[in-house]
């Protein structure tokens, strides 16, 4: 959301700042806070899953030399 706002340059005026920066930041902050309060086992499994994902990504992109495959949902 914030990256999109930065690219689209919509951080204009108080409404733009609140909608595109403050609200996403609050949401993300509480999400991160809840995430750090998870059970240690849950964190461990999540991190393992993430590591597996990175390994697959490295394999698919041959060490980030190729763009990753894209799933296109056309309608």
């Amino acid at each position: 959301m914030i990256a999109y706002a930065l690219r689209q340059r919509t951080l204009r005026g108080p409404a733009g700042w609140i909608l595109n920066l403050v609200i996403p930041l609050i949401g993300a902050a509480v999400d991160v806070w809840l995430l750090t309060n998870l059970d240690s086992n849950a964190l461990l499994i999540g991190l393992c899953w993430l590591v597996i994902g990175v390994v697959i990504l490295v394999y698919l992109t041959r060490g980030f030399r190729r763009p990753p495959p894209e799933v296109t949902f056309s309608e």
Binding site: G46, L50, P68
Partner: peptide, 25 residues
């Protein structure tokens, strides 16, 4: 307004590799 949720959003605004990891999560 397309399918894919967080995967699509991250892919189109930040980076395709980060998008892949978001989809993975």
């Amino acid at each position: 307004p397309v399918a894919g949720s967080a995967y699509t959003y991250t892919r189109r605004t930040i980076d395709s590799r980060v998008g892949f990891l978001v989809g993975w999560a």
